[in-house]
């Protein structure tokens, strides 16, 4: 089975003598699976997301050792735009992921950056919205969307970059019950489309959809057996 994302002996600390937030992690994620990583706040979940999506070391500095591979390509040797077409990330705060007044503008932003042709962008917008069953929202104002809908639009704007791997960093933390359910349904839908999903969570209610569950504690990853501590 192919493994689109792998980490080998991965360690990270924000400063040279600082505590290792991530300590010698080895991880293989299989194509088409939903992997959940749970952990208490401060256990390094977000840092792990940053390492797996190239945000570390490309945007944030620190002491990084070990390797992350995206489809057998060393993530350090790829640049952010290259990574963005392979790995899509949705973050916790819906407000700082929506930049534009209209849903369509938002979805077009990524492919525009990649210099995709206009007609192609239109097609990608349609595809992403239809996958999320949100075609009717295309011309809506983003400020009128609920928190859950904003997260879905943030996801859709990442999907227009056509990544095969999706990372969700506590995307349901600020969302109400109904919004959470909608996001979970979509994640299952993404799996059916053959996407590989990594979801990071502290809320155990949100991970029932996962195929495999790991817990992050003291910088290391272990099989999750019901306890975060």
């Amino acid at each position: 089975m192919s493994q689109p994302i792998r980490a080998k002996n991965l360690s990270f600390s924000y400063s040279k003598d600082g505590k290792k937030i991530i300590d010698n992690i080895n991880l293989q994620v299989n194509k088409g699976e939903i992997l959940a990583v749970v952990g208490l706040s401060g256990s390094g979940k977000t840092t792990l997301c940053y390492c797996l999506s190239g945000i570390i070391p490309h945007l944030y500095n620190g002491e990084l050792s070990g390797e992350v591979y995206i489809n057998d390509q060393f993530i350090k040797e790829m640049n952010m735009p290259q990574i963005a077409t392979k790995v899509g990330v949705v973050f916790q705060n819906p407000e700082t992921q929506i930049f534009f007044p209209m849903v369509e503008n938002e979805l077009a932003f990524g492919p525009e950056n990649l210099c995709i042709k206009r007609e192609q962008i239109g097609k990608r917008i349609e595809e992403a919205l239809s996958l999320l069953d949100m075609e009717d929202k295309r011309y809506d104002k983003t400020e009128h969307l609920s928190g859950g809908q904003k997260q879905l639009i943030a996801l859709a704007s990442v999907l227009t970059l056509k990544p095969e791997i999706l990372i969700f960093d506590e995307v349901m933390a600020q969302i109400d019950q109904k919004g959470k359910q909608a996001i979970k349904d979509i994640i299952i839908q993404l799996k059916k489309e053959g996407k590989t999903v990594i979801m990071v969570e502290h809320n155990l209610d949100n991970i029932e959809i996962a195929d495999r569950k790991l817990v992050l504690k003291n910088g290391g990853l272990k099989k999750f057996e019901g306890s975060l501590q």
């Binding site: 706040s41 933390a173 502290h202 809320n203």
Partner: peptide, 8 residues
Amino acid sequence: TTGLDIVR
């Protein structure tokens, strides 16, 4: 409770 894990 936003952003608090079960222990917190």
